[in-house]
Structure formats: structure tokens, C-alpha cells
Design a protein around this nucleic acid. Sequence first.
DNA 1: CTGTTAGCGCCTTCAG
DNA 2: CTGAAGGCGCTAACAG
Lengths: 354, 354
Amino acid sequence: MNAPSGDDEPAKLPTRPPTIKDVAERAQVSPMTASRVLAGGPNVRPQMRRRVEHAASELGYRRNENARSLRPGHKSGLIGVTITNIANPYYAEMQGGIEEIAAKANRRIIVGNSNEDPDLERQLVADFIGRRVEGLIVVPADPTHADHLAPESLGGSPIVFASRSVPGLDVDTVLIDDLGGAYEATSRLLDEGHRQIAFLGTRTSVLTGQRRLQGYRNAHRDHNVPVYEHLVRTGQQEAVGAERALTELLAHEIPPTAVFSANNRNTVGAIRAIARIRSTRTSETPAIRLIGFDWFEFADLSPVPLSVVAHDPRELGRRTAQMLLDRIDGARGGLAAETVELPVYLQLTPEGPK
Amino acid sequence: MNAPSGDDEPAKLPTRPPTIKDVAERAQVSPMTASRVLAGGPNVRPQMRRRVEHAASELGYRRNENARSLRPGHKSGLIGVTITNIANPYYAEMQGGIEEIAAKANRRIIVGNSNEDPDLERQLVADFIGRRVEGLIVVPADPTHADHLAPESLGGSPIVFASRSVPGLDVDTVLIDDLGGAYEATSRLLDEGHRQIAFLGTRTSVLTGQRRLQGYRNAHRDHNVPVYEHLVRTGQQEAVGAERALTELLAHEIPPTAVFSANNRNTVGAIRAIARIRSTRTSETPAIRLIGFDWFEFADLSPVPLSVVAHDPRELGRRTAQMLLDRIDGARGGLAAETVELPVYLQLTPEGPK
DNA sequence: CTGTTAGCGCCTTCAG
DNA sequence: CTGAAGGCGCTAACAG
């Protein structure tokens, strides 16, 4: 007995979502007519239209987008995003910018956390392609393991890199001006007379970190000031590491008089280290000068004097998404891959981002 | 002339992604055999298996998950998430927790920003259901406009609310212990002898804000201390508003001697206001005592003394996702909706979250 | 072990 | 204006 129940009582527990056929039956029309109505199509008698609309709303009918995307010409409306650390406020802002632009283009984002692991990243990308995303936005986890990000292994979906690039891959990329920002910050410290400037950064396999270190070195070179290699500390991914590193440096026989910290994690650690040291020193000891890459909330309330190299992660997300959409729409069809660098702003008295 | 080109040169510009039929043809087998191989199924001669695998990898074949999810019994593997403000670090952490659990269950999350707008939220939810998400996680934008979140209008997809509840809807919900946290914090201030305690919070239509205000009132009641109504300031959604509100209060003829700020936005504003006032006062003026709901980075480095009511947004995300997955798997099939309250921790000397 | 048939939900095409 | 046929990509179920 699979006879349906009476035909004007909505089922209480719909085991499966209603299909267009269910709607059609209930409205006593063919599925085709129902489809036309639901698509807002023309050439339907108002009476049928009402019947169908009524039936659909009674059943709580929702057109199945997955089935729909199967038809030729239809897209999934999805954009795949992989981020190396979703919980990082910086990337959260970026995701917000991506979502904002995607939503305006009536696209949805599907987000995965690669956790800096290229294998995970590969799986995520494969999954996204399986879902027929219209395009991908990726913060590449590791530029040395990125075959799976090459356009030819993506089955034609456009891809844009955000925040980090992958040398050797000809892919649209949106970066911020790491080199320039680090150069400016370091130059500023040198101009102020500092000669022992510590560098605190992430491991240099992260390209962003590499570029910022390069800016630091370039500034020294252009000012004819040698870099004390023992003051260059890379490899701190988290604030605790940075705090420890700087604490060590401050105890060194040639301690830094100023610090350039290459991202907000390292800046946080630096602030902690300086705040701690300060409490053990006499008030005559000159304060440690600190400039950090990345603005963050409270930069202006930092307990130790701080300048920052600010930039706008939300804008980074927006630009990335827009670049991808342009590719998707074919607006930049044949054009070669492009790399955009977003500007940074050296803020001596930190305020909010632009 | 739609004759295919030679059959051992992969097409350079695949207009459409390869289908299983393409793979089958190339491997000279039936689509069914190809399907079996690709699904890792048994009962295939190793030779065919290799042929298919080879063809698939040459073509860069990816199984179309959308088509797959059409078959009876198959799910989409998607979980829909709407958040009121993705860029808020608090929700970013929460999303991270959701993603973590979802990924372990081999689910992907699709994320939308409702921007506190119930209409946008409704659209997002409709879209998600159209994509046949297996379940929904929602931070409800407005409990008074939430019909679209009622289980009966969701076509059977389970839903869990995170961080905020909707009175009147019988839905699984994960909250934090707003009432208890606010009560504890306020009690602490009262125990310290304060009698004029300002309350800074969001508009009370946000239930979280309402509950925290209630905790503040309850503590006063239980301590037999009257609430100065002019010290209760709600409606500050952003830090600037809170800063302004507290600045006003401090200039009042009955100014607060302590402040309870009900979320991190208001705490930030309060810190700014207090820091500014302090610089204009003599050092003999007793400091304004401040306790804020929500831990945040730098709470321990705040320029003004600060205690916080800490909790763990990532754990909130994890619990929410787990609750949803349990519903999806039917592990908690018929059970009534449940509300979980996560604990908070009053930290007099703020450290990182648990 | 392998292939054929059929249908998941939808909509373009074409015939009434 | 409406409906029937067919196929998008995939895979159970059932032959061979």
C-alpha cells in the first residue's frame, strides 16, 4: 500500500523534500507547467499560476539546485575558498570581504580550513571541484607543494590566490605590498637612528614572510647598515614563540634597540616581551622601539609604544573575489594572469584600518 | 563535424568537465565499469581497473557530486551556516570550530553572512535548503522575525542555533551561560563594595544582551542593591558607541565607580573611555573598575585594569556542529530539542581562553 | 566479472 | 497556452 494519503493534508513528516512532480500533482498540472511557473516564466494562465504557487507554498517546495546545476549551461553558484587558518581574525576579515562580493553576485562560498597543510588543501580543492564550484580562492599553504593548484589540474575552474603567491604558477594573485611595507618600516627605524633592529617573522617557507624579510634587508642595504644576523629570528608561527625569541634577544650582549615584527602574531609576542622586560628595568633605560606589520584592534592601546604597517584584509578579500568573478564571467577571458599588490600604510599612531 | 579528435591526446581546452562517460570511452569500457572502479568497488578485473584509472587521471576526471547527490539515499555533504557577522573574531573562532567538526565528519560548510538582517537570513536559508544541505547552523539575527527558522518551514533539515536562542521555537540550541556570567561578574563588583556600576550592552532585542542584563539585575537584587537606571546603557553595537556612552556616564553627577560591559565591543569602548578620562584626572582619583564579558586577545595587556568573563567560542562551534551531526545521523532522532549552556570563567587576571 | 536499464529532479525542445 | 519526450551525470538493480 503506497497509496498517497488524502490530497489536501500536507504530510507531517516529509521523509524526502517535495519535488516539482509533487507540486504538479497537487496543483493538477503537468510538471512542465509547474516548472514554468516556478521559474517565473511567461505563457501560463493566471489560474494555473495561482494553483501551482499555492501548492508549492503548501508543500514548502524548494527547487533542487543540485539537480538544476546538472542541466547544460547551468552553474553551481558556488565558490570554493580554502584558508590556512579560518580562526585568524585577519583571514576572517578577508573571508568577510569575499563573501560580500560573492553574495552581490548571487554566489555562495564554501569554505575549508587547510590548516597550512598542503595535503588537506589538495583534498579540499578536489572536493570543491567535485561540487563543480565556479571558481576557487586559495590562500596557498605551501608554495613548494602546490601542483594541485595549477590551472591545468583544475579542470578549467578559474583560481585566484589570496595573500600569498606561488612562484612558477601563472595564476591571478592578490597580495599586499609586503616588500614595500617592510622596507618602509625598517627604513623608518634606521632613519630614527637605530642600528640594531631585530626581525621577528614566520618561517620563510611562507612567501609572505620571505618578502617581508627581504624588505627588511633591502632597507638595511640601501641605508648602508649591516644586518646583525643574530637579530633575525624567523620561525615563530605563534605569539608565544615570538615572545620567547625576543626575550632571548634582549638578553643578548648585542641587544636590539628596535624591533620590526613581520606579522600580528609576532607583534603580540613582542609587545608581551617588551612589557615584561620594561618592568624589570630602570626608567632611564630607553624604551624599545617597535613597528609591527598588520594592524590589529588595540594597536592604539598597546602598553608599549607601537607603530604598525596597516592594510585592509577585507579589501584583499573583495579584490580577490572580484578578480575571480571577472574570470568566471569571461570578462578577462584570455588575458594573462595578473598579480595585484594592495598598498600598506605606515601608521605612527595606529588607528583603525583605512 | 563533431567527430572527436584522436583518442590519446587530452583536449587542451576542455569546455566542460569530463564525465564518467568520457572516462569509459577512453578506457574502452562501459560507464558502469568505470563507475565501479571509481567508487573503489569490488569485482573488477585488475586490467580494467588500471585502464579506467589511467583514463580518469589523464582526463583529470572528478566525479560530479551534484549529480551523485541526486541519487536516492545520497546526501549533499553540505552544512549551511549563517552568521550575523563573519568578520567578528568571535564568530570567526566559532566558524573554525564548526568547520573542524564538520571536516572530521567529511562534511563541507557553506557560509553566509546575514549581517543581522532577518530578510537576508531568510534568503540564505532558502538557498541552503535548495542546495539540499544536510543541516543548518544559524546565529539567529532577530528572534522576533524567525518564522523561516522554524523546523516545519525547513523541509526536514535539522537546525541548531548557536550563541543565541529564539524563544518559542523548539530547536536545539547551544548558548553560553550569559546569565551566570553576568551575575558572577556583577556580584564580584558588588562584593568589592561598588554601588554605582554601569552596564554597557547591545540592544536588548539581541537575546544574549537581554540575558546579560538580567544577570546584572539579578545580582543587584540578591545583594539588595538598587540599580541606578541611568547607569544602564544598552544599544551600543560598536565600540565607538560604547566609548561615547561611558564618557557621558563618567561626566554624570552620579558617575559609576565600576563598569560591567556585556560584550567585547562594549569592553573595547569602555577601555578607550577610561584610558582617556584617566589622563585628565589626578592620580589620586580611584581607578574605574572594569569587568567585560568575552575574552579577547590583549585583554591581559589592557592599559586599564580589566577582568573578563571568558568563554570559548571555538568550543561553542564544536558543540553546535556535533549536535547537528547527531541529529543528521539520527543519533538523537526523536528526542526533544535541547539547549546546552557552555560555562564561563571569571578571570581576574585575564589569560587566553581555556 | 561486465553491461543494460532505468530514474534521481529539472528544464530545453518540440509537438499539440 | 500546455504537455510529452528526452537527457544532464551518476549508480542501484538486475541481467548476461
